[in-house]
Amino acid sequence: MIQIQQVLFELETDYQGHPYHVTGNALYNALARRVDARTRKQLHVSHGVFVPGEHGEYPSAHSDVGYGGVLGKSLPEVENYADLFLFRDAARRWLLDSRPRDAHNTHDVTRHGDRLSFAPRCWFGRPPEVRNSRRSVQWFVQCYLHCGRDDAVLPLDEEVLDGLRVGAARNYGLGELSLKDTQLVELDELDYSGIKDTALQLELVSPFVLSSEYPSADDQNVPWWWDADGELRRRETRLVNGDEVHTLATVDHGQVVAFTGEDAAVRTAKNGVLRVGTHSRFGFGEFRLRPTGSDRVPERAVGVGGEA
């Protein structure tokens, strides 16, 4: 049995770290000092994805349907494979069209001297006749943990998860994460019928490492079961361990390729959650499989309100 522990944090203060994600490495280092040596050795941490706490509607592949109330503030139950990714895509296509969705999904930028940060909440004015003149949308961060071999390490206690600090200036109070919700998910018990017996695409949820300056890290090729139509975008990023900074060459996240390993779709899907390649322990190499017809842009999905 493979277990993952999903964790949802509330962002309490301004955040000055990586803008795409709170990296798995940052979360791992914040956790590592709070756990015993055995856990430290076993723990794998995904990237943390920013989620606004806002009204939403479940996407069509989700096991729940229709209006979901305020999503982002708690972890919905996970029954099928697609449910795992509800909060993993920055475009947040579940936000309601009847509200200013793009305003809810972009971070407010604040300035501290010459450094810019993301604010933990965004304020919106309201019409004068409404009792409260302002409302706010709060930001949350979702990540998940799993272990190499020793499952007894999970779940981590709530006291261990609460009050982490990540990003730059974390010793000065920035980047504080309080625990909002956590749950265990058994990967083997999920429903994978959505990705069986169909042509599939692979969406890269976090960067895939091609080469790393980290000592003894292997270079990787783009896997043969990714069929990219043209060039895959690269991005250089860094892995920071204390004073050491290691440059990484990656395939950038957010890209979509055709998947040519259909025979092993379910096994590959689970590997995508547990991540592949160099530094997968720290969040790199996460991917999602999706039927080719079910475009991640809902209006373009075949047969689901799409029009030619």
Partner: peptide, 8 residues
């Protein structure tokens, strides 16, 4: 870049 990946 990160913000633009959020705007539909």
């Amino acid at each position: 870049d990160a913000q633009l990946r959020r705007v539909r």
